[in-house]
């Protein structure tokens, strides 16, 4: 195991926590203390970050914002059940190899098997299909590597990933070892659908992202929907908060708050009364069984239309 290359290739080592937070904010991501600090540490220590939390709290967005903030390219590996090395690391382009063999032999499909020269030839870089992990390792310029929803893969894949993240090199038997040219910022996200191995966690910094505090969520909504009235935005976030309190199949995330804000703006609503709520609540609540509960628990409690005491 060789020591990883030195960290902090992208930002100066002195870039402090506040600088990180500001840079993220400038890229449209309003980080709370822990998110800002962990992003900062990830760059300073060169360690991958495991980000967990409920759906839609900005796990993926954090990686994107980091890429914008640092001016690094974002390389994303979206995980899914059955994801294997061929799709994550690299794959040989068989079709291209075959064509080359045929061309070299010059005798069509029925011809002699290719000689040693050709064999060497077809395992060159031009026949290699680079997948996200290899791309991140091989990249000349430092990148942000997002390994999204790692919990969807199996343990075997996790072990492979751990190796890559520990050694920052990938060995390709036909080509040799590809070593990292620069240190990527690595974010892994998980929705907690299964417990990750101790070894992987050990390798990572840990960040738990939760639904943001009211003030921050108001800021986020206003960042995305600047034309919405400030008082209304706050009210909206409060109502979403009430909805989250209920035990729903799928509680509304930040994305839903933003969508709802857009809808209210389009409708020209100036308050959230029970009528407006009932008309638009399908934007924040998607499950049919959830809808009834939300209508009863939240919709009924909002002031009736016309009365102007919805916002304070």
């Amino acid at each position: 195991m060789s020591p990883p290359p030195t960290a902090a290739a992208g930002s100066g080592p002195a870039a402090g926590l506040e600088a990180t937070r500001d840079a993220l904010a400038a890229s449209g991501y309003l980080a709370d203390d822990s998110a800002a600090l962990v992003s900062h540490l990830a760059q300073q220590l060169g360690k991958p970050v495991l980000v967990e939390g409920p759906a839609g709290v900005g796990k993926t967005e954090l990686a994107k914002a980091l890429s914008r903030a640092t001016g690094r390219e974002l390389i994303r590996l979206q995980c899914y059940e059955g994801l294997d090395e061929a799709k994550a690391l690299y794959e040989w382009n068989y079709r291209k190899q075959l064509l080359r063999i045929q061309a070299e032999a010059g005798t069509g499909p029925e011809g002699e098997p290719a000689g040693g020269e050709v064999m060497e030839d077809i395992f060159g870089e031009e026949f290699l299909l680079t997948r996200p992990l290899l791309a991140a390792i091989a990249s000349e310029a430092p990148v942000v590597l997002l390994i999204d929803e790692i919990d969807k893969t199996d343990q075997e894949f996790e072990a492979m990933l751990l190796e890559v993240l520990s050694d920052f090199q990938i060995s390709i038997p036909e080509l040799g070892v590809v070593e990292a040219q620069s240190m990527p910022i690595v974010l892994l996200t998980s929705n907690n659908s299964r417990e990750l191995t101790e070894a992987l966690k050990r390798r990572c910094l840990y960040l738990w992202l939760d639904y943001p505090a009211i003030d921050r969520e108001v800021e986020i909504v206003r960042l995305h929907v600047p034309d919405l009235d400030a008082g209304l935005a706050r009210r909206l976030v409060e109502v979403v908060g009430m909805v989250r309190e209920l035990d729903l199949k799928k509680p509304p995330s930040i994305a839903e708050s933003i969508d709802w804000a857009r809808a209210l703006l389009l409708l020209g609503a100036d308050q959230i009364d029970s009528e407006t709520f009932n008309r638009t609540m399908s934007i924040i609540v998607k499950h049919r069984t959830d809808l009834d509960l939300v209508a009863e628990r939240v919709g009924m409690r909002l002031p009736a239309a016309g009365r102007n005491d919805g916002t304070s």
Binding site: L37, R202, Y206
Partner: peptide
């Protein structure tokens, strides 16, 4: 936060 990120997983 620095301690939490490294110790609590």
């Amino acid at each position: 936060e620095a301690l939490a990120a490294t110790l609590a997983k």
